[in-house]
């Protein structure tokens, strides 16, 4: 059976095939992150102290997550991701308005902001490793590295997809037919849905791990 490649909404699902596909994928992602969030809740409920004993020169009791984690850097990263979601939606809106030059600008900015997020995350991880704090140190750091690491992998995936649509993927738009342009715009919308999911995960991850 051949799956029709079109951007019209199907009468049975109410959405086109690409959107149905991305929503099914995002549903599986919600289950992945949801399971890890649930693990975090149960580990925290069962812990005598959270974050617990940490080696900080000498062994000391950390009573708050912000004594261990760098809230200012995480705040910068939050601002970066919010800005990238704005540029992503602007890239899509630019295609809707047939402004390809604007699309290239906004998509390029989205990629740069995402790279900036990873650089800041690299500094944050580097600081932890300097203190010899690893995922195996205690449950708090285990949760921190697993959740933020998985999120960083998703950001990397988003960068790869967006970079393709910024570079070689634009051939579809450049063919110039109305059908190709509609297909390319639909692809960017689907990539934008994924990118917003990744950003939304961080919006929940940040207060859960760094602040509470």
């Amino acid at each position: 059976m051949q799956i029709p490649y079109e951007v019209k909404a199907r009468p049975d699902t109410g959405v086109n095939n690409a959107k149905l596909g991305i929503w099914l994928f995002l549903a599986s992602e919600v289950m992945l992150f949801g399971g890890l969030f649930a693990a975090y809740v149960f580990l925290r409920i069962g812990a005598d102290a959270w974050p617990g004993m940490m080696m900080y020169g000498e062994e000391t009791m950390a009573e708050r997550a912000d004594q261990i984690l760098n809230v200012p850097l995480a705040f910068v990263n939050t601002m970066i991701l919010i800005a990238s979601s704005v540029t992503m939606v602007m890239a899509w809106a630019s295609l809707k308005m047939d402004r390809f030059d604007r699309y290239k600008l906004y998509m390029g900015l989205t990629i740069l902001l995402a790279l900036g997020f990873l650089v800041v995350k690299g500094f944050e991880y580097g600081d932890k490793f300097d203190h010899h704090w690893y995922a195996s140190t205690n449950n708090f750091l285990g949760v921190y590295f697993v959740l933020t690491g998985l999120h960083a992998i998703h950001v990397t995936g988003g960068i790869l997809v967006n970079a393709y649509f910024w570079g070689p993927g634009t051939k579809m738009w450049k063919r110039g037919t109305a059908r190709d342009k509609a297909h390319f715009t639909n692809r960017i919308e689907v990539a934008g849905l994924y990118w917003h999911f990744v950003d939304l995960v961080w919006i929940f991850l940040f207060p859960t791990i760094y602040l509470i």
């Binding site: 919010i82 919308e189 929940f204």
Partner: peptide, 15 residues
């Protein structure tokens, strides 16, 4: 994407 972006902005504002 338009609707998802508005939902995202609501959560980002709350954060």
């Amino acid at each position: 994407l338009r609707t998802v972006h508005i939902v995202f902005i609501v959560f980002a504002t709350m954060l």
